[in-house]
Nucleic acid binder design. Structure first.
Lengths: 136, 136
DNA sequence: CAGAATCCCATTGGATACTG
DNA sequence: CAGTATCCAATGGGATTCTG
């Protein structure tokens, strides 16, 4: 199963990915990795509005597969960014919510999003210019 | 060759990855992707100190492969975050530097890094707790 | 020095089917 | 509803080799 991360404790897979920076390169890389993950950001953003149930999240984050939503939520829960509450009903309901730590991430995320939004036009333009010069 | 991104213009690979959010999900995702990329951040951080040549970068970002440094620099150049200057010497020297846009990214990056640094202990602790409960 | 090209395995992640 | 398990295609990225 690919949900378990016991691998990440050895820090060495053999070849695969660097794993290098994970340990000795940049001590905060593993934290940043979660931000780089597209789905994680989407999930955190959605949960910022309030506690949400599994399928509601799945519906809102249109395009995410069931598997990735599960995996992403597990990661966020493991990191203490998201809490998971099971309601003993039939059928069972599970509610996900941001923890305080999770909420605290929203600010840095907003700063980054603001930068991205503000500079997206320049970046897009730069890409078109680059592609035009390369291709022609 | 995997350096070309003509794929990203169609926005559809067939199955592979979502590519979904790339276009219609989160318009700034493609920008954020660059931040999520471990190497990109490392390169930008290093260039923030001043213009640097290829092999000097490779030496400083210990662990990066030649291929990934090339690919990463191309991406950053395409996005207009990094400039590439070829000095007509023998042997040729190529100097990479942050553009104004590249420099402007440093602030949001710092904010994020500060958050990561400040909260890493909590996250680590949460992970250990989670792993202990799951494993035991 | 600064890359480009090739080879190839490891991880990613969608699709699908099954469970409590 | 809220997952878990399995299968498999596509991508990521290190290692290696070759060039101007």
């Amino acid at each position: 199963m690919d949900v378990t991360d016991s691998r990440s404790q050895t820090g060495e897979t053999g070849r695969g990915r660097p794993s290098a920076l994970q340990e000795f390169k940049c001590p905060i890389r593993d934290v940043l990795d979660r931000v780089g993950d597209a789905w994680s950001v989407l999930v955190v953003t959605n949960l910022a509005e309030g506690p949400t149930r599994f399928n509601e999240l799945k519906r809102r984050i249109e395009g995410i597969s069931q598997r990735m939503l599960t995996v992403t939520l597990r990661h966020l829960e493991r990191d203490g960014l998201v809490s998971r509450t099971v309601m003993p009903t039939t059928p069972p309901q599970v509610e996900y919510a941001l923890t305080d730590l999770g909420h605290s991430l929203c600010r840095p995320l907003d700063v980054l999003a603001d930068w991205a939004t503000a500079n997206q036009p320049l970046i897009r333009a730069s890409r078109e210019r680059y592609d035009a010069e390369s291709g022609g």
